[in-house]
Simulated scan of single mutants.
Amino acid sequence: MKCIVGLGNPGFKYRKTRHNIGFMVVDHIASENGWKINKSGFESHYTIEFLNGEKVMLVKPQTYMNLSGNAVKKIADYYDLDPQDIVVIYDDLDLPTGKIRLRQKGGHGGHNGIRNIIDQLKTKDFNRIRFGIGRPDSDLPVVDYVLNKFPKSEKKTVEEAIEKSNHACEDWVEKPFLEVMNTYNT
């Protein structure tokens, strides 16, 4: 089984904020395939479906961002998933808005959700899609910036990157992540 985890914070007030881009990508994948994320368990909302003959689990941890690893660990343990069968989608301040970057492993880069996943899985070797949200132009604190919604001026760029992330995830179901990475990181 392939596990696609979108990071975010639960609750209406965080909906469509920069920090919830992982949730937005997972919701888009579900919508594009006619699926509903309607199951609860593993401290997550999730669904398990089939895509091109492969079992796929879409996951939105409900632990709040900084404890995302708790949910990912429970799923990995229950389904005996290898970390390479997991891809985590999350916001990245160090990439321009709408730029995506796929990686097979690495550090947390200051992202507390990724830090917690590394701590819980006891490895840095899991697939990631870093979704650029840029940095604030003003003196706005980072915590406020990530919890704000994307402005209308970035809507098209964000939608295109969500679609690109969706295609990368769907390609990964059929191809090695390295091959997908080489395609989408150009």
Score class of each variant (00 low, 15 high):
His28Val: 05
Ile29Cys: 08
Ile29Glu: 03
Ala30Ile: 08
Ala30Arg: 00
Ser31Leu: 15
Ser31Gly: 12
Glu32Thr: 14
Glu32Tyr: 05
Glu32Met: 15
Asn33His: 15
Asn33Ile: 13
Asn33Glu: 15
Gly34Gln: 12
Gly34Lys: 05
Gly34Ala: 14
Trp35His: 14
Trp35Val: 15
Lys36Ser: 15
Lys36Tyr: 10
Lys36His: 11
Lys36Gln: 12
Ile37Trp: 00
Asn38Gly: 12
Ser40His: 06
Ser40Cys: 06
Gly41Asp: 05
Gly41Leu: 04
Glu43Thr: 02
Ser44Tyr: 01
His45Arg: 02
His45Asp: 03
His45Thr: 04
Tyr46Thr: 13
Ile48Cys: 14
Ile48Ala: 12
Glu49Thr: 01
Glu49His: 01
Glu49Phe: 00
Phe50Trp: 04
Phe50Gly: 07
Leu51Trp: 15
Leu51Ala: 09
Asn52Thr: 06
Asn52Arg: 07
Asn52Met: 08
Glu54His: 11
Glu54Gly: 07
Val56Leu: 07
Val56Gln: 01
Met57Asn: 02
Leu58Cys: 12
Lys60Ser: 05
Lys60Tyr: 04
Lys60Ile: 03
Lys60Cys: 05
Pro61Phe: 03
Pro61Met: 06
Gln62Lys: 04
Gln62His: 02
Thr63Lys: 00
Tyr64Ile: 05
Tyr64Leu: 07
Asn66Val: 09
Asn66Gln: 09
Asn66Ile: 09
Ser68Asp: 08
Gly69Leu: 02
Gly69Val: 06
Asn70Trp: 01
Asn70Cys: 08
Ala71Leu: 06
Val72Arg: 01
Val72Lys: 00
Val72Trp: 00
Lys74Leu: 13
Lys74Arg: 11
Ile75Pro: 04
Ile75Thr: 04
Ile75Phe: 01
Ala76Arg: 02
Tyr79Glu: 10
Tyr79Phe: 15
Asp80Pro: 04
Leu81Ile: 10
Leu81Val: 09
Asp82Trp: 04
Pro83Ala: 09
Pro83Cys: 13
Pro83Gln: 07
Gln84Asp: 11
Gln84Val: 15
Ile86Asp: 02
Val87Ile: 13
Val87Trp: 00
Val88Ala: 01
Val88Pro: 02
Val88Leu: 03
Val88Gly: 00
Ile89Phe: 01
Ile89Ser: 02
Tyr90Ile: 13
Tyr90Ala: 07
Asp91Tyr: 05
Asp91Cys: 09
Asp92Tyr: 08
Leu93Thr: 06
Asp94Asn: 15
Asp94Tyr: 11
Leu95Met: 11
Pro96Thr: 08
Pro96Ser: 10
Pro96Gly: 08
Pro96Lys: 07
Thr97Asn: 12
Thr97Met: 12
Gly98Cys: 13
Gly98Ile: 10
Gly98Tyr: 06
Lys99Arg: 14
Lys99Cys: 08
Lys99Tyr: 14
Ile100Leu: 15
Ile100Met: 09
Arg101Val: 12
Arg101Ile: 11
Leu102Trp: 06
Leu102Glu: 06
Leu102Asp: 11
Arg103Asp: 10
Gln104Ile: 10
Lys105Tyr: 10
Gly106Leu: 10
Gly109Thr: 14
His111Met: 15
His111Asn: 15
His111Thr: 14
His111Asp: 13
Asn112Arg: 04
Asn112Val: 09
Asn112Tyr: 03
Asn112Asp: 09
Asn112Phe: 05
Gly113Gln: 03
Gly113Glu: 04
Gly113Thr: 04
